[in-house]
Amino acid sequence: MDAAVTHAFEGGFAEPVLDAQATFRAVMDAMARPARIIEVAPRAAPPASLSPLVGAIACTLIDADTPMWLDPRLGESEAVRAWLSFHTGARLAAAPAEAAFALIADPGEMPPLDRFAQGTQEYPDRSATLILQLDSLEGGAPLTFHGPGIKGEATIAPVSLPADFVRQWTENTKRFPRGVDLILSAGEALACLPRSARLIEVEV
């Protein structure tokens, strides 16, 4: 049997019920408190180019009901495709606009946010959630947000976002209630940017 296929069976949740719950609560807390960094122990061990935390979030939220889109770095890895397919049962979306979830390992090169499903004015929930694998959530250009879930302001400084992220995110929040939601991850830390988080200030 080919190595990629063998590996695909391993590295999932050891305790599927409890691991998924713990991972979900971290994501829910982060979504409810945008731009706040939350530490969470990744409970999955996916193949190399997929980070353990993104693998765990995928196992928690993605299943046969939710097409997923992989960015080229993840999509080119047969091991990653086989692992996600086995552990989530999700089918791959041919284009970003068709995906409920997008897994992105190379955020600097990701398609513009408006290429993903935005939902409709009647059903804004039919929109994509983007899970980004970043180098770090600290040390980049600071981004300051306000909005629901944020007491006053919240600042986060993720590294390796797209160069024109500020412009893209401002447009994303202007489309409210349509728009995409982001789950940013780096190592064992995650932070969320729901479409309701409005950018107020950028320092260079």
């Binding site: 719950q21 829910m28 009901d65 959630t129 729901p194």
Partner: peptide, 29 residues
């Protein structure tokens, strides 16, 4: 199963909760 619901149902509800949080006040089917 822990907390009665099966895991696929929980995932579906969890996705709805996340979208609900992202769009405060909007009713997610």
């Amino acid at each position: 199963n822990f907390a009665y619901l099966d895991e696929q149902t929980k995932r579906m509800i969890r996705r709805a909760i996340l979208k609900g949080i992202a769009i405060p006040g909007y009713q997610v089917p």
